[in-house]
Design a protein around this nucleic acid. Sequence first.
DNA 1: TAGAAGCAGATTTTT
DNA 2: TCTGCTTCTA
Length: 681
Amino acid sequence: MSEILQGLNPEQCEAVRQIDGALLILAGAGSGKTKTLTTRLAYLIDEVGIPSSSTLTLTFTNKAALEMRTRALRLIKRKDCAPPLLCTFHKFGLLFLKLHITLLNRKANFILLDGEDRKRILRGFKSSVSLSLLNSEISRYKNLLLDAKSALQYAKDSTYKEIAKLYGAYNEYLAEKNMVDSDDLLLLPYQILSQNPALCAEISQKYNYIMVDEYQDTNDLQYKLLKKLCTAHNNICVVGDDDQSIYGWRGAKIQNILDFADNFKGAKIIRLEKNYRSTAEILELANRLIAFNTKRLGKELQSTRGSGKEVVHLESLDERIESTQIASRIQKLLENGANPNEIAILFRLNALSRSIEDGLNKANIPYKLIGTTRFYERAEIKDILSYFRLVVNLNDDFSFLRIINRPKRGIGKATQDKLSAFTQNRGISIYEAITNFKSEIPLPKKHIEAIWGIFELLKLLREKLAESTLGFLDLFKERVNILDAFDKSQDEIDREANIYELYGSFRDFVVQNPEASLEDFLNDISLSSDSDEDARDCVFCMSVHSSKGLEFEHLFVIGLEEGFFPLVGDSTDIEEERRLGYVAMTRAKSELVISSVKSRFYKGKRTALQKSRFLRECGLVSGAVRFEKKSEGFKKNDLVMHKIFGAGRIESVSSEGVNSKLKINFGGITREILSSFVVKV
DNA sequence: TAGAAGCAGATTTTT
DNA sequence: TCTGCTTCTA
């Protein structure tokens, strides 16, 4: 057996050596999925002798791409070849469009929009439709390959007719400004490949061996794109886990993985069911839970680690007590030498993080909240990047309008609207207007001069950039004070830190790629989501979605109450909720604590809650497992705390039980309150 | 134009 | 309850 295969179990080994034809690797949580995929890539190149340029490996996140690239490059011994193309679907789309977007009669120097830009444009179209509906429907249409005309035909009522029209207007706007949104990164390549069969055949022959990570997360468009890439062959190997499909709400089609064998002829399925991550107790719980789902390919994880600690169900009166208890448990872990980075708290809703943060703050435990506003979407960062884009292209009105009043220059919305109206009438950019028709712009001199001044500055920056990239950065720092655009407040320190982090990463980029241009930098980061944040000595708090792919020695999952987890709304898919529960549990390596409360404060009111059905399904609340219960019997004369009324003393208790009615005296006024609304002090 | 006050809406999120 | 967007007022 070749060296590269050593250390793989028989199933992993089989998956690596199965190189031709369609292959589905059904890889359970913690079953060595990345190891298998990266080894397979190295095997293809080193042992089978396939040129690295004939392979294409697609992932969903940059993080996954980076990790795989690092691990694959460590394995690949042949150094005479270019590194294989291993990137996200979207990055692949971007590279493809850079080369071929001209086939759609568009220029290659398009601007890539992020989600925020897109919302900003849509907000500009005045309409009665809510922004979030408009945004998600447009995304849905693009992923369904539905153009504005068809969308209008299928529109079932006036709202959807309006959405369809706005969709058309939005597309025209993008084409006119030569912009591309993230959905276009998949849609446009698909269109190009469909319209140009010869190119499609050529590309497919070029990438003769295709691998896809997290196949359960592919949507319809991604599937169709993959089909196109496989026109000249059938060498597609996908890895995924139907039980971890948690992005259905975003258009991911679990059916893609369920139907893989039908969609790709002669597909072979290999199951990786040995779990190297979690103790038997944790896996038993997770297996029991997921067994309640019906739409599955079927798979049961077996622990290779053996028995460990019992899984704990922590039950608290409310979220304040829950967070105190969890904080004190974490405190103990830390005192016993646990690595804070190996501790995480997961929740179904980001809104639940607040109480947990309070608890951690009170206990002085440093924590890192993951996945809130992303670095490159922060206002101050986008402002700077808009300046950078303008330096590259003075005619980029979209960026110009963003920074026209940042820092504050006394140019408000009214002025901006007048300016836009003028330039749009003439079909010219703001830069052209100010250079050639300065006297005709219907604005006060003061504003004209201010706008002129911005372009003077931009031109100065441009000249400096031609001389030296780092000199440009220094001049930029000196002349543009982004912080002036924001209200003075405590988050100023954060903003400043973010700005310096951006400057730092630009500097790093320049040092590492001395030949690269500013444009290259902008392209490089427009697809990346998160900067590497320093989280040393921090415990992690994040949503279950953000935790996918991660693992922690000690894990707390909170909010296991009906309505919260499973989250019940009008479009609840209970099987997807259960898969989320499964994903959450299988993040734990050695210790798992699952918490529920009897009442929770949410959206302005306190609600009494039932335990999640998942607790029953996984067997945590059948008496088989240890309970940690706090006595919460209220008695006359007990001192209690109410979130609104403050401290009070119980005058009488009308009934026993979870939600007994209490008469409480708050500073002379007696009120009747449900017991779930107060905490004993 | 800029700051204040009023109001609706409030899963999950990568690119 | 809190946020972020829109409208109001100095």
